[in-house]
Every structure is written in C-alpha cells, then in structure tokens.
Write a protein that binds this DNA or RNA. Sequence first.
DNA 1: CATTGTGTAACTAAAGTGGTTACACACTTC
DNA 2: GAAGTGTGTAACCACTTTAGTTACACAATG
Lengths: 151, 151
Amino acid sequence: MGSNSRLAVAVHTAGILALRGRQPVTSDMVATSVGTNPVVVRRIIGCLVKSGIAEVRKGSGGGAFLTRPANAITIADIYAALGEDELFQVPSLGKEHECPIGRAVRPILHQLFSGAEEAMIGYLAGINLEDLIKMLGEDIPDGICGEISDD
Amino acid sequence: MGSNSRLAVAVHTAGILALRGRQPVTSDMVATSVGTNPVVVRRIIGCLVKSGIAEVRKGSGGGAFLTRPANAITIADIYAALGEDELFQVPSLGKEHECPIGRAVRPILHQLFSGAEEAMIGYLAGINLEDLIKMLGEDIPDGICGEISDD
DNA sequence: CATTGTGTAACTAAAGTGGTTACACACTTC
DNA sequence: GAAGTGTGTAACCACTTTAGTTACACAATG
C-alpha cells in the first residue's frame, strides 16, 4: 500500500482494549472489529506490548489488555509504539560530487522535518484513549461485533 | 521506497529557485544539486507550477523560477503542491459485517488524523523560503555545483 | 533552422503493507 | 498430564508507491 493504515489499526485496537478494561481480548475479536486478519492485529499488538502499553496472556481465556488506565495512554504513545520511520526522508547523497548547496541544505531539511513531526506528535500527545472513548459517545454498544458482552 | 523523499526534493528545489531569484534554473542543474535525475526534478517542478508557486520557460536559456518572493512561499505551500495523500489512512471496511465499534471508530479516527496533519501543516506554514535561506547561513556558495555563478 | 530544455510516456527495480496460511509454543483448564 | 486455546512468527503473494532511467515529441530561444 505504502499508505499507513497501521496507526488506524493500532488506535482502533487500543480503543477496544480500553473499552474492555482488564478483560483480555483475542486478536480474532479485534480483527473482526477492525475488518482485517488476526495476524495483522497480532503484529500491531506486538508493538504495543513491546512498548509496555499492553500485555498479553496466552492460552485459553487469554488475549491482550492494557497495562495502564485509558487516560494514561496517549495516541502519541501508540504512534511511538509502532516505531515508524520519519515522516519525511532526506535522501542521502554520494559523498563526493556534491553541490555545496546540497550539502548545506540537508541538515536544514532534517531540522525542518523533525520539527514538523514533533508538531504532529504534540497533537497526538494531547489526546488519550479515554478522550477517544468519550468521543465515541453514547452509541458504544456493549459488545464487540456482538460476540461477547461481558462475563 | 515507500518513504517520502519527495518533500525533501521539492523544498531543496524551491530553495535553489529562491536563491537564484528570477534567473531560470534548469532541471539538470537542480538534479545535480539534489543528486537525482532531471526527470524526477521535473516531476516535482511540475507540481510547483501546477499550484502557481513556480513558472517554467522552455527553450534555450529557459528553466524554472519562482512566481513570488521567497518570503511569500511557505513550506506548507510546497507540501500542498505535492498533493500527497493523507498522512494516515483509515482503511475502508466492507459494508455489512461490521462491528458497531468499528463503525463508530472510523469517523473519530478521521477527525484525529486530520487534526494531526493540520498540526504538522501548521508548523510548516510557519516557515517560508526566506527563513530557509537564512538558516543556510553564510556558507551559501555563489554557484550551484560550481556550474554557474551568475550572468 | 539548430539548439536547448521541458513534458511525458514507458519501463525497471526496490521497498513497504496487507493478507493469508501454517505451525510451534505457551498457558489455562479440566 | 492431556486437551484446548491463543499467541508469536515465519513464509509467501499481491499490490502500491517511489526513484531512476531512457526515449522522444514539442516548444521556445537565438
């Protein structure tokens, strides 16, 4: 694709985990809700686990759940968990035959782009999972895809 | 690649045009400075022209030049000129078998992601080509890759 | 009219994602 | 301990995007 829907899947996943509290959620359930494959979800959840946002219990009755309360997890945390490359790349040049302007511009571009990325991350840092759930509003159903309601 | 170095090329290109003022710059010259192919540069310049930032004169002695003073062109203008997709995509789901949460989450994600992109663009809008040139500092040489100095 | 430079098409190559299948391993539960 | 459940991960395919390159027609200068 080239286009990143990874963050969408990750936020969606984390949102579900937040809704379910300490109830473990299987990758199958999340996949059904997101509309993708369980393996795709597991790859994302793996990122969340690696950065300490989520935890996974294996075996029967297992699944993933958040390690922190929803209001202690920002979207920026989730973004960082994915470990994406920089938004904009500055192509590296050959060492020799380089234009002096070309050489001078590159560090400026780096600075510029990292500033832009910071700005974006700053925005994401201002929203946490609890906010997200609140934004979902009243129409949150009790079950994920009708499969489960609660114990 | 998947990674966007297009913005880097575009900003680099626009920077050179800004440095050269009304002197037309050929795609060959820019390509040498950027370290890429003239065609790649022409594709980028085409975007700049389409959005009114630059103009192109064909034929001998021709090339591209900016239509506005450098301080009237922000990096956000250049970013917009490229016509990139949204930074983060929200995957579209099949219509039927959709989880109610899945359905509720998608518009929230859209809102979230466009907010993030706005934040980034806002940052880019705060920097114009004149700022960029100033950042280059004193070590701006007089020529692009030593080929030309001035008329 | 010759030269120069753009615009564009066409093709190749490389990389990232998503989707899928398959299977070993861990953990729970009985 | 045995069975069942769910994860982790590898392997592979399909698709998309981008960069790079060659080639050539067309426009404009001089």
